[in-house]
């Protein structure tokens, strides 16, 4: 399996996700500078977390116009799996690969903590390592993770079974109190129509190593390796 991690000015979780990918794949992913015109042939493209262009103007707004993004979008449309984590999720909504927007957290504060996520479906290359309905612990670290789309869009997304993960409590209950950022319908992660593009605010790469206090993120990388090798 070949994976490419796109590096933007201001990306800061590029190395972290590369470490998790290497642990699962047994080899290093390609680190691809945003100024390149093409992504090298890859089975997986990762848009990492961080503050591309300092989040100035709007999170992901400027990086969405980086030269590399034209090819990322084209490859995604042709079916290359794309994983956008945190700032990568912003890029996916900014480029229209995923609907909706990620607004400032309801608390107006940056939040860094472990949250519980409910795995909504496991029939994608990203999630086969989880059971449907499984509750996993993954950290969030963002200022702008408050997912918003209009009601019609949300209904359509639910109808198309495109919600990947929802914020929940330790028992899996989806109540408003545990929603860390105000996201509509507790949405933490979202797929495209074909389930090949995943945007998620939580950082699976941050709990994929027992030394860091948990491994609930690891099955995502293992699932990808199994599906794409």
């Amino acid at each position: 399996m070949k994976a490419s991690v796109i590096v933007f000015p201001g990306s800061n979780c590029d190395r972290d996700v590369a470490v998790s990918l290497e642990a699962a794949m047994g080899k290093k992913p390609a680190m691809v500078w945003h100024g390149e015109a093409d992504v090298p042939a890859s089975d997986l493209i990762v848009l990492p977390g961080g503050f591309s262009y300092g989040d100035y103007l709007r999170s992901g707004a400027m990086a969405a116009h980086s030269p590399i993004m034209r090819d990322v979008v084209a490859k995604a449309r042709k079916g290359t799996p794309v994983l956008g984590i945190c700032n990568g999720f912003h890029l996916l909504t900014e480029t229209g690969l995923l609907p909706g927007v990620l607004m400032r957290n309801a608390s107006l504060k940056f939040i860094c903590k472990d949250v519980w996520l409910k795995v909504v479906r496991n029939d994608t290359d990203f999630a086969r390592g989880y059971a449907p309905g499984e509750v996993i612990r993954i950290p969030i670290a963002h200022h702008d993770g408050n997912y918003f789309a209009d009601e019609d869009t949300l209904d359509r997304l639910e109808g198309e079974n495109r919600v990947a993960f929802r914020y929940c409590d330790a028992s899996g209950a989806l109540n408003g109190d545990i929603n860390p950022n105000g996201s509509q319908r507790n949405i933490a992660g979202l797929y495209n129509e074909t389930g090949t593009v995943l945007g998620l605010m939580p950082h699976p790469e941050r709990l994929a190593d027992p030394a860091l206090g948990g491994t609930d993120g690891r099955p995502m990388f293992d699932s990808l390796v199994r599906a794409l090798h």
């Binding site: 800061n12 190395r15 939040i111 860094c112 950290p139 790469e205 190593d209 030394a211 860091l212």
Partner: peptide, 16 residues
């Protein structure tokens, strides 16, 4: 206070 700080980025925080 510290939940407003990213204390896990770089993937090496062993004791939060």
């Amino acid at each position: 206070v510290w939940e407003q700080y990213d204390h896990m980025v770089m993937g090496d925080t062993l004791r939060r």
